[in-house]
């Protein structure tokens, strides 16, 4: 049962992402990427990462993609629809992608992963996914967490400075 849902979500993701990279209209591409992220949230739930699934919908589909759509509205995108959409290096890219895909296929055919490990905590004391994630994030990964906040601050200032009309001296 689980595997059929996985195939459904994975097939939906591949279909919508293929449609996304072939659209001429940018807004259609952004909305198709939102759909891809909803399918991805389904894959995360099947993998037992419920918190990431919620973050995927709230933050990615609801935050980052809305930022994209608002920025697209600020730009003049109608002209781009009538222009040539593809680089002239398409054949080279396709050949490289097929070669890379065959390489990954060959490597994955060799590796035997075996049965997945069991979670360490004892039965009956199982913490939820959010609790387990928070316990690791705020102890073992506290320093990377703080570095990520500085990265967010820097990119926020950078975005304001770059998009500002004129910079006062």
């Amino acid at each position: 049962m689980e595997i059929y849902f996985f195939y459904m979500f994975a097939g939906g993701m591949i279909l919508t992402s293929l449609l996304m990279i072939t659209r001429a209209n940018v807004i259609h591409a952004a909305l198709l990427l939102v759909l891809t992220f909803f399918f991805l949230a389904g894959v995360f739930v099947l993998a037992g990462a419920e918190f990431l699934a919620a973050v995927q919908i709230l933050l990615y589909a609801g935050g980052i993609m809305v930022l994209y759509l608002f920025s697209i509205m600020l730009m003049n995108v109608e002209v781009a629809v009538r222009m040539r959409q593809w680089h002239r290096q398409g054949v080279v890219v396709l050949v490289a992608a097929v070669l890379l895909g065959l390489e990954i296929w060959a490597v994955l055919g060799e590796v035997e992963f075996g049965a997945p490990k069991q979670w360490e905590w004892s039965l009956g004391a199982t913490p939820g996914n959010v609790e387990a994630l928070g316990a690791v994030l705020y102890t073992k990964f506290l320093f990377p967490f703080e570095v990520a906040s500085i990265l967010l601050l820097a990119s926020m200032i950078g975005a304001i400075v770059l998009a500002k009309r004129t910079i006062e001296r």
């Binding site: 591949i14 990279i21 591409a29 994209y68 222009m83 593809w86 680089h87 290096q89 890379l100």
Partner: peptide
């Protein structure tokens, strides 16, 4: 891997910066 390849193809083949 498949999604990464699709994304890489999009980066290398499209002219539109937003895509």
């Amino acid at each position: 891997a498949v999604l990464f390849l699709i994304g890489a193809m999009g980066v290398l083949m499209r002219r539109n910066a937003i895509i």
